[in-house]
Structure formats: C-alpha cells, structure tokens
Design a protein around this nucleic acid. Structure first.
Lengths: 217, 217
DNA sequence: TAGATTGTTAATCGATTAACAATC
DNA sequence: TAGATTGTTAATCGATTAACAATC
C-alpha cells in the first residue's frame, strides 16, 4: 500500500507546466537513441534544479532506479499518460482572425492530445474558407456541431468585447473546457474549466525586464 | 525619505503579470466615466483578493486614499509608467508562419508599448508580402536593419528546430530582449533577456483539469 | 566495493492572506 | 462621528531547495 492511497492531493500547477518541457526533451533524447536518462541531464538542459525534476516526475507517476536513472521509453509512456497525449480530444475555435487561424493551422497540437477540428466566425468573407483541410464555419452552426460531434473543448480567439458572449454560447452548447485568448475575465459556471492565455501579462514581464536593462545602460 | 530609498527589491513576477489585468479594467472604468475606484471593485471583477491588489498597486508605485480609494486618472498614469506603455519599443519578428503573422497583424500590442515593425523569413514565397502595411523581409537583411533602426526586441516564431540559430543571429545583431514562442530552451548570453511563451504548458494545465472532470463524470 | 543517482524528509524561501492600525 | 478603505505588519500557505538515507 503506497502513501498515495486514499486522499489525492492535487498536483501543483507549476509542476504541470514543467512536465511538457521534460517530455519534449526526453522524446528528443529517445529519437537520438538514448535508453536511460537522469534528472541532472534534464536539469542541465532546462536550467532547473534536479531535485525539483525528480519530485515533478514522481508526482507524474514516474519512477527511476538509483544509479541508472530513468528508462526513457517507460518515462515517455508515463508522461504521455499523465498529460493525456494518447487520448486526443476534439476542439472548436471561435474567432477566425489571425490568431484563430494560427491555432487552427498548427498541426503540433495533435501531439499534445488536442485536435482542433474547425473554426467558427460571423464574417461571411471568412466562412467557407479552410486551412489544412479544416473549415471555417458559420458560428450559427456551433451549437449543433458541438452536440453532434461531442466536442468538449472550446477555444476563444475573438476580440475582448465579444468574448463573454462566445463563452456563454459555448457553455450553453455543452462545452466543458474553455481556453481563452481574449484579454478579459469571463463569467462561467463553476463546473466549467477555464484557462486564460494572456499575452499582455507575458509582455509586461518582458518589458519590465527590458526597461530595467535599458535604464542601467 | 521613504523606505524605498537605497536597496530596491525586485517586484515579484506574479505581481508584474497581474498589473496589466488591473490596467485593462481600470481603463475600461475610466472610459465609462469612473473617477475613483477601490481595490474591492477590481477584486470583484478579477476574482482576486483585494489585499493582494492593494499590495500590487503599491509595488507599482500607486497610492490611494482611505475611504475614497484610488483616483482613476492618476492610477492609469502610474500603471502606464510602470508597464512602460508610453515608451513604445520597436520589435522584429523572425518566422512569418501563421503565428508570426498573427502577432505582426495584431494592432493591440501598440497599446502595450510594443511596435512590431516587420517580420523576417527565409521563404521567398513569403518575402515581399505584407500585412497591415508591415513587410515580410528576407532574413538576410535582419542584422543590417536591427543596426540601422536600433531595434532592441526580437520575437521568435520559427519551428523549434531553427529557434537556437535565430536566437544566435538576434544576439549577434544586437537584440537585447527575446520573446520566444518556440517550445525549446535557448542558450543566450546571460545579459540577454529571454521570455518564453509556451502553449504546451498552458495546454497541459487545461488538459489535466479536463481529464479530471471527464473521469469524474 | 565505491560512487552515482533516486526518493523523501526537513529547512528555506517567497507569495498570499489575515489582522489591524491609520485615516479620510 | 462612524464607517469605508488604504497600507502595513504578522501569520499562513505552498513551492523550492537542501540534506541525507536508500539502493543499484
């Protein structure tokens, strides 16, 4: 009986955010033919503390062997399971602007278990278009298609002013997870999973650091 | 003599990331004619702790008045100063794929003090094109134009496999701040400011939560 | 065996939240 | 004045790092 029977404590978000970084490096090493890998290898590459990596991997369900490290193949399997990369989920995008199209056209999400199926918009100039075989559809069909295809994830790439309206529509259609790129907080029922991607926040960090350096010089 | 004379302790990154959220809400309130605002107003809107907001604003250099709260106009000025929104910096993008074009075409960055001037690529099919009057240029001209225009910020939107090469080129050209959207750690001299934007990490958080909910159901 | 590496417990650090005094 | 709100100090919480035992 391991200590993780009974109450499961939630995995810290910083840990979850780091796991994909480990995964990518390990997969690269795997391609290069590596059979075993140690936390200090990963730490060196990602400039992180090896103890932290060991703890993260342990929380993800991986375990290694003293002296030899982790089995690369095994580690990949465990991390893929943890991250849900093997159970691909369909997603719809609402907002076929540049960002929406960038996400729709990006094939890489498949590897991360996300299959963006189509985009929706109100602009008749965009409706009917497609990218990489993925269509831009009239937003009026959103609800119908969510139901018919059982889509659970919605991605919001409309301007801030329309984001709440879109979120409401998604919730009503049966979407349970929303990834919003609109820089505005959204009101959704508490059982809905909501993740913001806020470029303004990242940019603030970059600008702040840049300003500090420029001031010094 | 205030307590912030002498040693300046760095502002926590979580604080820096929240300031733009406050700013956006306050600006909206300003547009709606608000003259004063309290931390609990902001807290309610952003679903944060009002004490945290008070502390963040204080670190940004703002101060309010007991009972009345903060002066909206004054607060905006202080936050704009803090975030560097009034001193617009030019930036170049390398990688004119969908994401690069999305960023190049997004006018909103101007408000955040970032002016993306042009994109660079190696693909002759893309070179010569433009979006919103912003050109896609041959990457061979990158270094020359960085020097001539005094550009300090570089944005990397090339595939992971080419990102290090691009980072090297940016550093050599005189770029001091790099915002990388490539999902790979980069090696740059320590005086270079480097900020990663990693969608795989955000997606991992979303997926993890989604999987948990789906398992329950 | 000796040494490298994992895994875990304890210590530290930093950020958030609570408590409360100051004040308009 | 009384009450609302700021600003700050103290307490709490959570994540990172250090120390060290286990082990292959």
């Amino acid at each position: 009986m391991a200590s993780n029977s009974g109450i499961k404590k939630p995995i810290p978000e910083p840990t979850i955010r780091r796991i994909p970084l480990y995964y990518q490096f390990i997969r690269q090493k795997h391609k290069e033919g590596a059979v075993r890998i140690s936390c200090s290898d990963i730490a060196l590459y990602l400039k992180l503390n090896p103890v932290q990596i060991r703890k993260d991997l342990s929380m993800a369900g991986a375990s290694g062997r003293a002296k030899t490290g982790y089995d690369v193949q095994e580690l990949l399997t465990v991390l893929e399971e943890f991250l849900g990369y093997k159970t691909v989920h369909d997603a719809f995008i609402v907002g076929a602007g540049h960002l929406g199209m960038a996400l729709l056209g990006y094939e890489g999400f498949r590897e991360y278990g996300l299959n963006i199926v189509a985009a929706f918009d109100t602009d008749s100039a965009k409706i009917g278009g497609s990218i990489n075989g993925k269509s831009i559809l009239n937003v009026q069909r959103f609800s119908e298609l969510v139901g018919r295809m059982g889509v659970k994830i919605g991605i919001i790439t409309v301007p801030a002013a329309h984001a709440q309206k879109v979120a409401d529509m998604m919730v009503e259609a049966g979407i349970i997870s929303i990834w919003s790129f609109a820089p505005v907080p959204l009101d959704v029922p508490e059982n809905i999973i909501l993740q913001y991607e806020n470029l303004a926040s990242s940019l603030a960090v970059l600008s702040k650091k840049t300003l500090q350096v420029l001031k010094k010089a």
